[in-house]
């Protein structure tokens, strides 16, 4: 089996290598991909969409359909993760919750229906494989979170003028939540962004994107033609397109953030969203 695989792979590699001479050389300004559409994007971006970052203009406007469906794919991936892991019942698992008495460090194990209210301040719920955490690591990680989130908002909002946009900012926002999960525990993340909120946020992001496109029809434009909002914003057509790109990027950021946090929570806790990394 391994030999057959090696043979197949080498054969495919040789076939690929045989085509290499057909590809343009590295950095060729006259290569086929750089000749036809790319100059139109580069020269049309500023006059048509008021967006100096060509990547954002192509992502949000010229290839709006593509990005919309990519966002939908991200959302669907999060939902599939949810249905694969979360919807299944846990069979024959006796649940034990562990509580640590903070002043003494004594740990209580309690069988499933019984719980200690989280409001009882001298007990804290801990994971089954809990080990004493380093205060420095935890404090520094939590200290970093607001800065990561502010930077993420900057990346989203400034995507028109500098490298950035909805996908990158959304990933940064998700990273801030995952950092909380890694330095504290999963229940802290759950209290900050519950599963329900996360999934609703993800759906809202896709709806914001598709809704922006759909609403353009009522303003007399085509689907995803943000130029139709010119009369609504009271601005010129290119400025309205720039505004539409920003709205769409916010939708993308919401979906990406919520989906990645959901996937992390489900995968790291084996679908229980109780105990995990």
């Amino acid at each position: 089996m391994k030999r057959l695989a090696l043979f197949t792979v080498i054969l495919a590699g040789v076939l690929f290598a045989a085509t290499a001479s057909e590809f343009p050389r590295l950095g060729d300004p006259d290569s086929a991909p750089s000749r036809h559409l790319s100059p139109a994007y580069i020269q049309g971006s500023l006059p048509q969409t008021h967006t100096p970052n060509f990547v954002t203009a192509v992502l949000g406007d010229y290839r709006g359909f593509d990005t919309m469906f990519e966002t939908a794919v991200v959302f669907l991936a999060g939902m599939s993760c949810f249905f694969i892991l979360r919807a299944l019942r846990r069979r024959g698992l006796t649940e034990v919750y562990y509580y640590r008495h903070k002043p003494t460090g004594v740990v209580l194990a309690m069988l499933a229906p019984r719980r200690i209210s989280p409001r009882t301040s001298c007990f804290e719920r801990i994971d089954a494989d809990w080990t004493p955490q380093d205060m420095v690591v935890e404090t520094m990680c939590l200290f970093m979170v607001p800065f990561i989130q502010v930077f993420a908002l900057y990346v989203i909002a400034h995507g028109h003028y500098s490298p950035g946009g909805g996908f990158q900012g959304g990933v940064l926002l998700a990273a801030s939540f995952i950092l909380v999960g890694l330095s504290r525990d999963l229940r802290t993340v759950e209290s900050l962004l519950t599963e329900k909120t996360a999934i609703l946020t993800a759906a809202a992001g896709v709806c914001l994107y598709a809704g922006t496109g759909l609403l353009a029809l009522f303003f007399g434009g085509n689907f995803l033609d943000y130029g139709a909002y010119a009369s609504f914003f009271g601005a010129a057509v290119p400025a309205a397109r720039s505004m539409g790109i920003l709205i769409v990027e916010i939708g993308v950021a919401l979906t990406v953030m919520a989906t990645l946090v959901t996937i992390y929570k489900l995968v790291s806790s084996r679908g229980t969203v109780e105990e995990g990394l």
Binding site: F54, V73, V74, A77, S80, C81, V171
Partner: peptide
């Protein structure tokens, strides 16, 4: 050329999401 950047930008995020699945 901005087009490959756009395509790979979305592909990276989608690859993370599909890896989650």
């Amino acid at each position: 050329n901005p087009l490959p950047h756009v395509l790979m930008l979305t592909a990276i995020v989608v690859s993370v999401a599909t890896l989650g699945v």
